[in-house]
Each structure stands twice: as C-alpha cells, then as structure tokens.
C-alpha cells in the first residue's frame, strides 16, 4: 500500500483532528449512534440496486452535511478501497453465470460484476455515514453516548482508557524508534530486523504496563472505585426531532425499495 494512503495509528491525533462545525454537530450523540447503526444494518441487508444507490446517496449527503474534510475523507475511503479491491476484481471471474466479457481468456460474468458493485455501494454508503455521524464526535463524547445507551460500563471505560493512552503510547513508540534510528537501525527483510522489532514491541508493552500501574495508583489515591461519573447530560432537542423526522422516513424508503 503506498505510504500516503496509510492512516498511521502512530500519528493518531486523538482529539486534535479539527473539523468544521456543522449541522450534524448540533445533534444528540445518542441519536447519531443509533441512527447510523440502523442505517448500516439496513444498508448491508439491502439487496436491490435502487435502495443501495439511495443508501450511497444518503451517505454522501451526510458526509456533505457534516462538512467532512474532503482530503482526509478521500484518503480514508481510498484506503478502504485498496483493502477490498482484490476481492472486487476477482468476483466477476469467479462467479458462475453467462459470460459478459473476456479478459485474457478468462470469462467474467454479469452476475459477479453486479455482486461486486453491490459490495462497493454498501461499503461506501456505510463508511461515509459512519465517518459523518460518529467520526465527527470526540471519542469521549462517543464513550458517554455509548454508556447512556446501556453499553456495559466496563467496555466503555476500556474504550475511554484506550483512547486516552493511544496518544501517550504513540509518543513512546516514536521516541523508541527515534532512538533506534539514531543508532542507524534500518528496517530490512531479515531476522535482525524482526528481532529488533520484537524487542521494541516487548519493551513498549513493559513500559505501558508499568505506566498502567502508576495510573492505577494515582487513580486509587484520588478515590477511584471502579466508576466514572458522566457529567454531561445529553438532551433530546427539537433539532433532534426534526432530523429524526427526516431521517427515519428515508430509512423506511430504503427498506421499502427492497420489496418493489
């Protein structure tokens, strides 16, 4: 995969990624999570091209509404495409059916091509909606919204911890890599590289573990009893009602189109 397509987790910017405030930001986070989940399930289960085209259009519309950073979004969508491109290209040739066209003696079937197109539409519709509705939330808000939606406490806490320490550990990793580079370490395809990287990973884990012990001690000292308190109260406002009144009929239409 070319370097520019990789969204490297080591440069995870956590909450620092800026996005322009938009209409979507004014909606209740809980509503955004619920609507996007329903939308994703409906889209993945849809079988007709009409409803899938509409789903893709809705995904695009949500992305526009959320004023997603075009470059960043394009990079992510392209990265996803690179991931599935192999599957998509193979599909017309491996699906039995009447020959549609031939490439180098291999016959491609129309059924396979349509199937591939369907997967493409579904994946893009879902990813755009997801990035627009949930990807624009801060991870903390998302955690709180999930907690309010009755996702188990421990799981939400775990997510909040992971998000909090992604950046810290990312820095730690970069620091160690810089130290290796300073000692003229270059990644190659040999056992020396793999051993060095293994040691790096091991050391990263040991450092992380020791850090977690210090975190635990500091939290205990401040009276941690296995519970986080959720201060923000999320309210369902008129804007949410309006948005739902627009969105839910669209979902109904998506479902309905499958039965035409």
């Amino acid at each position: 995969m070319p370097q520019f397509l990789e969204h490297s987790g080591t440069s995870w910017q956590g909450q620092n990624v800026k996005h322009t405030p938009s209409l979507i930001d004014r909606l209740d986070p809980r509503l955004r999570v619920v609507l996007v989940s329903v939308f994703a399930v409906v889209t993945v289960l849809s079988q007709s091209f009409m409803s899938l085209s509409m789903a893709a259009a809705m995904g695009l519309l949500l992305a526009l509404l959320a004023q997603l950073n075009i470059k960043r979004t394009l990079r992510r969508v392209l990265a996803m495409d690179m991931f599935m491109i192999f599957l998509i290209i193979l599909l017309p040739f491996t699906t039995p059916g009447e020959t549609w066209f031939e490439v180098a003696g291999l016959s491609a079937s129309k059924a396979g091509f349509l199937h591939a197109l369907m997967i493409l539409l579904k994946a893009h519709a879902v990813v755009l909606a997801l990035l627009a509705m949930v990807g624009t939330l801060s991870a903390t808000t998302l955690g709180h919204a999930l907690a309010r939606l009755r996702v188990p406490d421990k799981l939400v806490h775990l997510m909040l911890f992971t998000v909090r320490y992604l950046e810290v550990i990312g820095q730690e990793y970069k620091r160690m890599r810089r130290a290796m580079q300073a000692r003229a370490f270059v990644l190659r395809t040999n056992r020396h590289t793999w051993r060095a990287i293994g040691y790096l990973v091991g050391m990263l884990l040991v450092h992380s573990l020791e850090r977690s012990e210090r975190i635990m001690a500091a939290m205990k000292c401040r009276g941690y009893q296995g519970k986080f308190y959720l201060f923000d109260d999320m309210t369902f406002t008129r804007q949410d009602v309006t948005f739902s009144l627009l969105f839910v009929p669209c979902l109904g239409l998506l479902i309905g189109m499958n039965f035409l």
Binding site: E6, S8, G9, T10, W12, K154, H157, L158, L160, F161, T162, V163, R164, Y165, L166, V168, I169, G170, Y173, L187, R188, T189, T193, W194, I197, L200, V201, L204, L205, S208, L209, R211, S212, E213, I215, M216, M219, Q225, G226, K227
Partner: peptide, 24 residues
C-alpha cells in the same frame, strides 16, 4: 475486574500502535 481496567486499556492502546508497524 475494575482494577485491571487501566492495564487492559493501556495494553490495548499499545497493541493498537504496534499493529501499525510496517515491516518491509
């Protein structure tokens, strides 16, 4: 248990980072 939460969370973050190490 809740006492292990920071440990699992930090390790989960460490693995998240480690899984982005690309080897040629």
């Amino acid at each position: 248990d809740y006492d292990h939460l920071p440990q699992v969370g930090v390790l989960s973050a460490a693995f998240f980072i480690a899984s982005y190490i690309h080897l040629p």
